[in-house]
Design a protein around this nucleic acid. Structure first.
Lengths: 386, 386
DNA sequence: TAACTTAGTTTATTGGATAGACAAACTAAG
DNA sequence: CTTAGTTTGTCTATCCAATAAACTAAGTTA
């Protein structure tokens, strides 16, 4: 068979998904409410809810308030019937969470990456995952999968093609992890994961079109268009760090000139700060808090360049929001105004009308939470497919 | 009712759409072939085909070859059961086509825009449309709608918010045309229409992710992501002409600096060519054909800047193809090599692996054909909804 | 207590897809 | 020219999900 044709099973999947979606969002909800709000018949809802209860995804949590009739039986999603693992594999750290199916953090582990060699790093990663798996309580579905965000280009088979800062090339991480843990594994770029994390659990909740700009050593972006991650033809869109904003500017290792991340990343900041005797972002943040003028000027310069790139993004994508995340979001107090000014000055008026400039709410957890979210939504789509 | 729920009618719509899609693509096709290729039961196909025949969308065109059994009855889409109108409203011309439902051109009209004032231009536009309507043969569905591509920002209600080169602001063209003709009307940006035209009838057939770069007086882009037009949150994405490629370059009327279209558009070309005594693109093309060195150099400079912007596009969107269209595509012989070189030099290697650089096949007709296509697909989605 | 409300289930019906039987129309071999 | 085998397309009985409407359950209000 070549095409996914429509039959009764498809209808049932669609309607089951609708019912589950209502319960996921609407928290305690009765069958009658679902019927009314969804437009599905009461009998249909009853039947589908029964299936979900049998499938350990939903439970009855007692009766609700009556307004002059029989009390409703309230339904709730069983968030603890399965657990997800989300990992943020950084250039010099490994961060991991165990969450329930609603994304609530059950356990968290952070360690610094001891040896960036692929094999050694993989072993350390496995240790982290094993420790998290061990913390998962008994549940009907157990651990439903593993998601990993990595600082590099990932193809659609989950291989890391190139991770410059880790110096990795062609590391088939998804295959390795699948073989080791026999669980569904999703690998994606750190910025894509961060975008997902912020959209689901952070500053971008309820926003349909958002661009997440991950400003760390380099700059990466995650594009969420019509509510879902856009990955391009081969799976690696969003390399906006290598958007040239100075056609004849500084040469970049990527072969291009004037790449955005050469002017607006942590790396760019640190290079300029070295002259002033600063060695890391933390020191600069302290100095900025102490209102040291040269440092404030430095942040202003970075902020202006950030704004230049973001104005480009706004013009091109016409998003609802741009979220600045990753390490540089810590400098929000010294960046926000200048970024906002630059964007307002440079972006097209019509595009500015409805766009919001936000900073990541999850901070360092964006990417890790996005990885967990990807695992959870993968689980749901598998559940819905049956 | 808030959510589109699944019921039997939905199944039928889905399956009818599948059957119709097969007939549209597969040209002469029998019921048995459709059943086999689609996975739908023979009886189901028979029933749906009968509905399509009753609905004047499909007809039997005789028997096909037998391979040792009963001869199949071949089916064909009735392209002439309805007609669509596609208009390209330019800065100084109005171009229109009447096509059948397969996009075959039945009639075509071009005139130069006499008066760019909205009211006068609207009257001239109506004249063009009336003439095309008059050319439509009798058919079950008649003229199924009107599509118009315009050089400006269009909101989701079909109002032209701003068309700088026409000096239009807040012109509710869709409302005007709907009131006048009582037909479904679609208005969109000229670049979006061009992208659609090239994807359906031109260089981009069968390509899922493509970016159409319309290089005329300014530069606009149409984004086709996962086979369909991406329009952003408010309906106006793709203003890549105002992508800043020189952060501190020339000031643009849009408020930004160093906008791409200040270096790579027809306008940019003509400004530089004025010094050499050229007044329009046609004269420059002649001079280039005569291998006049200063002109060749001029095109090389434009080509390099085009390449710089396209490299940015490739890095950001990771598309399958970039198509250069509109007036500047005529300069292909003098642009193609330098554009290609620049892109190869500046875009990230991984993104280059599968990307094609193409020129519009429909030439000046891209936008107009896209407008017709949008009308046709609107008609189909209305048919499928019943 | 009676009258009314609301929640959720049961029952009969509807409509679309399907498998399998079947008739029609053909090819090819003897 | 017959006969066997093949392919097409239709017909029929059945299945299944959604639905309306009737019904049961369990409350509130006057």
């Amino acid at each position: 068979m070549t095409t996914p044709t429509g039959d009764q099973a498809l209808i049932k999947r669609i309607n089951t998904a609708i019912v589950l979606e209502f319960i996921l969002r609407g928290a305690p909800l009765s069958r009658a409410q679902i019927s009314e709000q969804s437009g599905l018949n009461k009998a249909t809802v009853s039947s589908l809810v029964q299936d979900l209860i049998d499938g350990h995804l939903v439970e009855e949590i007692g009766t609700g308030k009556s307004s002059g009739g029989r009390k409703p039986v309230m339904l709730e999603f069983i968030a603890t019937s399965g657990y997800a693992i989300g990992i943020d594999l950084g250039v010099n750290y490994i961060r991991g969470v165990l969450t329930d199916l609603r994304g609530t953090i059950i356990a968290e582990r952070t360690s610094s990456l001891r040896d960036p060699e692929p094999a050694a790093a993989f072993e350390q990663l496995c240790g982290c995952i094993e420790a998290l798996v061990a913390e998962a309580p008994d549940s009907p579905f157990g651990v439903v999968g593993i998601g990993v965000g990595v600082p590099g280009l990932v193809d659609d088979s989950g291989s890391i093609l190139f991770a410059p800062n880790l110096k990795w090339r062609d590391v088939p991480l998804q295959r390795w992890l699948t073989e080791r843990f026999s669980l569904p594994v999703t690998i994606d770029n750190e910025a894509n994961m961060g975008a997902l994390g912020e959209q689901k659990y952070g500053a971008g909740r309820t926003i349909n079109h958002l661009i997440y700009v991950s400003v760390g050593i380099g700059i990466g972006t995650g594009l969420i268009l019509q509510k879902s991650l856009y990955k391009g033809a081969s799976g690696f869109s969003g390399e906006m760090g290598h958007l040239s904003i100075e056609a004849h500017g500084k040469s970049c290792t990527c072969g291009n000139r004037g790449c955005w991340e050469m002017y607006a990343s942590e790396q760019a900041l640190l290079e300029q700060a070295a002259v002033l005797g600063f060695e890391d972002l933390e020191a600069l943040l302290d100095a900025a808090a102490a209102e040291q003028p040269e440092v404030l000027e430095l942040f202003a310069s970075i902020g202006e360049y950030l704004g230049i790139g973001i104005a480009n993004i706004v013009n091109m994508f016409n998003p609802d929001a741009v979220i600045i995340g990753n390490r540089m979001s810590q400098a929000r107090p010294w960046l926000e105004n200048i970024v906002r000014q630059t964007v307002v000055q440079r972006a097209i008026g019509f595009h500015l009308r409805n766009v919001q400039l936000l900073f990541a709410e999850l901070g360092e957890r964006s990417s890790m939470m996005g990885a967990a979210e990807m695992t959870i939504s993968g689980f749901f789509s598998r559940v819905k497919a049956t």
